[in-house]
Each structure stands twice: as structure tokens, then as C-alpha cells.
Amino acid sequence: MFVHGERVRLRAMEPADAEALWRWNHDPEVMRWMDAGYPQTLARVGAWLAERPRNTYDDVLFGVDAPAGDETGWQLIGLVRLHGAEPETGCADLDIYLGEKEYWGKGFATDAVRTACRYGFESMRLHKVTLTVVTENAAALAVYRRVGFTEEGRLREVFRRGGRWLDKYTMGLLEGELR
């Protein structure tokens, strides 16, 4: 099953996606604004994708595909995840990143966020999608605001980069606010 946006399609991640995921997770530029965790081997990333439970209401992980511009049709360029969803609250958290840097700044992230949120509101019957973002991550903030997210709070000094502690915004999007 694919979930189509204007520029991207979302699909379930597969073990064959391990190499791209491993490569992105070891690229300092890609991981600049994210909690990178600890380095993993390619075999461990492949095993994680193979062993990962299927997508469920409380945790949906999509690969973000974009047109490849050649005969292959589509290329995996990133991932987006809705997780922590609870039917009682109708809320879920959103995570996204694009690992293929040639797709940065061209509207693919905006379309992926919009498409994932639309899926959450329409298919999962969510009422709200939330996220956190480092306050200095201007590109991500622009994407989230373009889609309709609103800043709801500030988490002080919870992210460390370059020897400095940085703040994060908490942001939220209600189902009627999606643009």
C-alpha cells in the first residue's frame, strides 16, 4: 500500500532499505539536528528492519519515496513516523528526516509531512499531531509552519551540539489546521 502526496509516496520500510538508513544515520550533516543514538553496523540496521513489528496504530513507519528521474521509477529519500498514538487522546508524535541531500530544500519534506499528517487525520482518525524541533533548525521550522504546525512550548537546553545546549520547540497540528 502506498500513501501518495503531490511529490512523494509513503510506504512501509523494508529490510532492503537498511543500506540507505545506515548511510544516513552515519552522515553528520543528515544527523545534525537529531538525537543520533549510538553507531550501528549495517547488519544490525538490517536486522532491526527485518525484526521490526509490522506497522500498527501506535507506531507507523513509512519510507519516503520520490521520483528517481530514471527507469527505476522511485527512490527512497527519507523516512517519516507517527508513533505514540493513543485512541483515547487521538494524538501521535511525528518524526521525519530526508537522508538524500539532493532532495533538500525542494519541497519534498513539506509534502512528506503533509502526507503523513493527512494519513494520520484521515486513516488513523487522529485529532492532533505533535513534534519537537531544535529551535535553531530553521529549515525544519519552515516546513512545519508551512504545513500548519503551531509552537506550543519550549523545552530549555535539552539538545547538545557543538558543545552548546540548545532548546527545542514543542509544536502541534490539529486536524482542521492542516494546510
Rank of each mutant, 00 (worst) to 15 (best):
residue 98 L to Y: 04
residue 143 V to G: 05
residue 82 L to P: 03
residue 7 R to K: 15
residue 92 A to C: 09
residue 74 W to D: 07
residue 159 F to M: 03
residue 127 H to A: 07
residue 79 L to P: 02
residue 143 V to S: 03
residue 164 R to N: 10
residue 21 L to S: 10
residue 24 W to I: 09
residue 1 M to N: 13
residue 111 D to Y: 02
residue 158 V to P: 10
residue 69 G to W: 04
residue 99 G to C: 02
residue 61 L to V: 15
residue 25 N to Y: 13
residue 46 G to T: 08
residue 102 E to D: 14
residue 33 W to D: 00
residue 102 E to P: 15
residue 167 D to Q: 12
residue 115 T to N: 00
residue 70 D to S: 13
residue 127 H to W: 12
residue 139 A to L: 01
residue 165 W to A: 12
residue 81 R to V: 02
residue 136 E to R: 07
residue 179 R to K: 15
residue 98 L to P: 09
residue 151 E to Y: 06
residue 76 L to T: 03
residue 39 P to N: 12
residue 49 L to A: 07
residue 55 N to D: 08
residue 119 Y to R: 02
residue 157 E to M: 07
residue 82 L to N: 03
residue 75 Q to E: 11
residue 161 R to F: 07
residue 95 D to L: 14
residue 7 R to Y: 07
residue 26 H to L: 08
residue 149 F to G: 05
residue 119 Y to V: 01
residue 114 R to L: 11
residue 59 D to P: 11
residue 177 E to A: 09
residue 102 E to K: 15
residue 55 N to L: 00
residue 127 H to C: 08
residue 166 L to E: 05
residue 110 T to F: 05
residue 144 Y to T: 02
residue 91 C to T: 11
residue 160 R to P: 08
residue 55 N to Q: 06
residue 76 L to A: 07
residue 68 A to V: 09
residue 101 K to D: 12
residue 63 G to Q: 01
residue 11 R to C: 06
residue 111 D to I: 10
residue 122 E to P: 10
residue 108 F to D: 03
residue 33 W to K: 06
residue 106 K to R: 11
residue 117 C to Y: 00
residue 145 R to S: 07
residue 119 Y to S: 01
residue 114 R to K: 10
residue 163 G to F: 05
residue 72 T to V: 14
residue 177 E to D: 09
residue 126 L to N: 03
residue 99 G to V: 02
residue 15 P to Y: 06
residue 74 W to Q: 10
residue 103 Y to C: 02
residue 27 D to C: 02
residue 34 M to D: 03
residue 25 N to K: 12
residue 150 T to L: 14
residue 33 W to N: 01
residue 66 A to P: 06
residue 68 A to H: 05
residue 100 E to C: 12
residue 108 F to V: 07
residue 174 L to D: 04
residue 32 R to W: 08
residue 115 T to Y: 00
residue 40 Q to E: 15
residue 143 V to I: 13
residue 135 T to M: 06
residue 12 A to Q: 14
residue 73 G to M: 11
residue 119 Y to W: 00
residue 40 Q to C: 09
residue 31 M to P: 06
residue 66 A to H: 01
residue 101 K to R: 15
residue 111 D to S: 08
residue 4 H to C: 15
residue 104 W to E: 05
residue 49 L to E: 00
residue 32 R to F: 09
residue 81 R to P: 09
residue 23 R to P: 13
residue 120 G to V: 05
residue 53 P to F: 05
residue 40 Q to L: 14
residue 95 D to F: 08
residue 42 L to T: 04
residue 67 P to R: 11
residue 78 G to N: 04
residue 67 P to K: 12
residue 79 L to M: 14
residue 111 D to P: 10
residue 2 F to C: 13
residue 115 T to L: 01
residue 27 D to G: 09
residue 4 H to K: 14
residue 15 P to W: 05
residue 44 R to Y: 08
residue 92 A to M: 13
residue 60 V to Y: 01
residue 177 E to F: 02
residue 171 M to H: 03
residue 15 P to T: 08
residue 74 W to F: 08
residue 129 V to I: 13
residue 42 L to S: 00
residue 116 A to Y: 00
residue 94 L to Q: 02
residue 137 N to R: 00
residue 36 A to L: 12
residue 138 A to M: 13
residue 22 W to L: 06
residue 124 M to Y: 07
residue 128 K to I: 06
residue 119 Y to L: 00
residue 119 Y to N: 02
residue 80 V to D: 00
residue 36 A to S: 09
